[in-house]
């Protein structure tokens, strides 16, 4: 017997029953069962959920985000020289499923939560901008590209950001969709950031994601359209023979990627807070990424040779891009 298709069940917070976004989204799924709930956490935070099983038939949860809407960025994330780095969570969880993804350690379940009250996020953002320029990551706990048909978040956020010159907004993705690229074209305060990994790692660990060649095609399209494009060769994954795997990867990038059009590149090896790493190990006993014998440094699980890995990659990248365009994390120096 097969699993039900994605979003065969949609949970909706009672207070959002009449919200126009709820109505728009539900109209897209006439065959889905709609279940009204009080708070999204009643479903999302249930105990003993099976993340792995839920990935086979993800449900959608439509919710309203209360309380804090912008969070200070984590110290293990790239700030790109920005004084004020914040992130926002307009959606929780992802339609892609990467073995190393930190969401597997953070969240109790795999259902996707969409916060529909984007108007409140914009107000919070405007408020924060009063204190000065802001670097804001919009897809910190999701990939917004594959969700766009349902959420419409990219359309609304890019529209908002275009009117806020002191806001530098970044959307990070593994998608190969090119139809959404015009939303970002010609706007220097909108950064499109692609996570690129060696094909071997994509096949083994980045489930449901497009191949490397498809992502490269999308990157080149974005550059041609005049988008501000960032590459994230991050996280590097320590697979057996990682040097030769990443050597071939760089060869493919150098052969097919328009490096001249890249704004900058961030690099970093896998890291995860020790607390979430523990949860990942418990929840995913058969995942090599979860079971790697990491070392703990300042509360984060890392590879023993994380400095060597990132320095090795940086050295090689310098053949294609000037050093000032390559961002590493302070702990990798």
């Amino acid at each position: 017997m097969n699993f039900l298709p994605k979003f065969s069940h949609i949970y909706v917070e009672e207070e959002l029953a009449d919200h126009p976004e709820t109505k728009r989204i539900l109209a897209r799924f006439p065959a889905s069962h709609v279940i009204f709930i009080r708070r999204y956490t009643d479903v999302f935070n249930r105990k003993k959920q099976s993340f792995e099983t839920q990935m086979k038939s993800q449900a959608l949860i439509l919710a309203k985000k209360h309380g804090t809407l912008l969070y200070e960025g984590s110290p293990v994330c790239h700030r790109f020289g920005s004084e004020r780095f914040f992130y926002t969570t307009t959606a929780l969880n992802c339609m892609f499923s990467c073995d190393y993804c930190w969401l597997k350690g953070i969240y109790a379940g795999a259902f996707i939560v969409l916060f529909v009250n984007t108007e409140d996020y914009f107000l919070a953002c405007k408020e924060a901008l009063k204190d000065g320029p802001l670097f804001l990551s919009l897809s910190y706990e999701t990939d917004l590209f594959p969700l766009e048909e349902i959420s419409g978040h990219l359309h609304r956020w890019t529209e908002f950001a275009k009117g806020e010159e002191t806001l530098l907004a970044e959307v990070r993705t593994k998608s190969s969709r090119t139809d959404l690229l015009p939303l970002f074209a010609g706007h220097r305060n909108l950064i499109l950031s692609w996570t690129l990994s060696p094909e071997e790692i994509i096949t083994a660990c980045e489930h449901f994601t497009p191949s490397l060649s498809k992502r490269i095609h999308a990157v080149n399209e974005a550059i041609a359209l005049g988008c501000s494009v960032r590459l994230a060769l991050d996280p590097m994954i320590h697979v057996p023979g990682w040097k030769s795997v990443y050597e071939s990867f760089l060869k493919e990038l150098s052969a097919s990627l328009e490096f001249d059009g890249i704004r900058d590149i961030s690099i970093g090896s896998y890291r995860q807070s020790d607390e979430y790493q523990k949860k990942m190990r418990r929840r995913f006993p058969d995942l090599a990424c979860a079971q790697y014998p990491y070392i703990s440094e300042s509360g984060f699980s890392r590879y023993r040779d994380h400095r060597e890995m990132t320095q090795w990659l940086k050295e090689r990248l310098r053949q294609f891009v000037p050093e000032e365009k390559i961002f590493t994390l302070p702990e990798d120096l």
Binding site: M1, N2, F3, L4, S8, H9, Y11, H33, I35, I37, R38, D42, V43, R46, Q49, S50, T53, Q54, K56, S57
Partner: peptide, 10 residues
Amino acid sequence: DYYPDLLCTS
């Protein structure tokens, strides 16, 4: 309220 997962059913 309680919510059982309905991921596979006939």
